[in-house]
Design a protein around this nucleic acid. Structure first.
Length: 104
DNA sequence: CGAATGACCAAGC
DNA sequence: GGCTTGGCCATTC
């Protein structure tokens, strides 16, 4: 396959500890390409179900997912299972990055 | 190969 | 201070 970037993203996301979360730009940066946040988001959109995609959120700590197969409510449930507190605000969900941000 | 897409980001209005 | 615009980049059409 030639989609190395996707594979790298998946590989890295799998390494995120259960009690932590990462941002799209963080993933991109760790892969050596700080400008590829958009591509990271797209990689996760492929959502191979064997990766903890719920631990990856945008830079504001907000869950802006738009996916029938993986609704926000599901992501929130999974995050709670991981021991992460999710804050609900006007229909949107947030994670406190100051507390849960993955420090690699 | 050129154009379009998208779960992003930063700057502008 | 919330919404729009343009720029990023890898993948798909």
């Amino acid at each position: 396959m030639k989609n190395y970037f996707f594979l790298q993203v998946y590989s890295l996301v799998k390494k995120i500890p259960r009690w932590r979360v990462a941002t799209y730009s963080q993933i991109a940066t760790l892969l050596g390409q700080p400008r590829s946040a958009q591509a990271v988001g797209w990689a996760l959109h492929a959502c191979p179900d064997n990766i903890p995609w719920q631990r990856v959120i945008n830079k504001a700590g907000m869950i802006s997912i738009i996916n029938e197969r993986a609704p926000k409510t599901l992501q929130v449930a999974l995050l709670k299972t991981d021991g992460i507190k999710v804050i609900k605000n006007e229909g949107d969900f947030f994670v406190d990055l100051k507390i849960y941000r993955w420090l690699k």
